[in-house]
């Protein structure tokens, strides 16, 4: 089972920036992102988040979000998807970074979950 990371933010540039930050340290991990509304405004888009989940090449996904509606939209997409998806209430950047570099390092799911646990802030 390969593991991948999905990033969902309210702002397209934030999502892209977090991706850029993380990709440097996790070049081989499938990381996809969605930011903002369909029109590029601040908010969440079902369509963009669904695409980020569907376009991720990994079998199992770890998702990280910034605020409220990004999580609720991830939740809705996850209800509709067949992939195993976990949404983490972790500090956004630290959580996504931790998961990605540990996946890159070949760590097991249990070990990654254990390292993410103390980053829970929401």
């Amino acid at each position: 089972m390969t593991m991948g990371v999905v990033i969902a933010s309210h702002v397209d540039k934030i999502a892209e920036g977090v991706y850029q930050l993380i990709k440097e340290s996790a070049p081989d991990v499938s990381i996809t992102y969605a930011g903002g509304t369909d029109d590029g405004d601040v908010g969440s888009s079902y369509e963009l988040i669904e695409a980020a989940i569907n376009n991720n090449e990994a079998d199992e996904l770890y998702c990280f979000y910034d605020l409220g509606s990004a999580k609720m939209t991830l939740d809705m997409v996850s209800d509709m998807s067949d992939k195993p998806i976990t949404i983490f209430d972790a500090a956004f950047i630290e959580g996504a970074y931790t998961a990605s570099v540990l996946i890159q390092g070949g760590y097991k799911k249990e070990e990654i979950d254990a390292q993410l646990a103390p980053l829970k802030i929401k």
Binding site: G68, S69, M72
Partner: peptide
């Protein structure tokens, strides 16, 4: 509502 609202009220009213 799910596809067009863009804020928390989208998934909430949508659900």
């Amino acid at each position: 509502l799910i596809s067009k609202v863009g804020g928390a009220s989208g998934p909430l009213y949508g659900s």
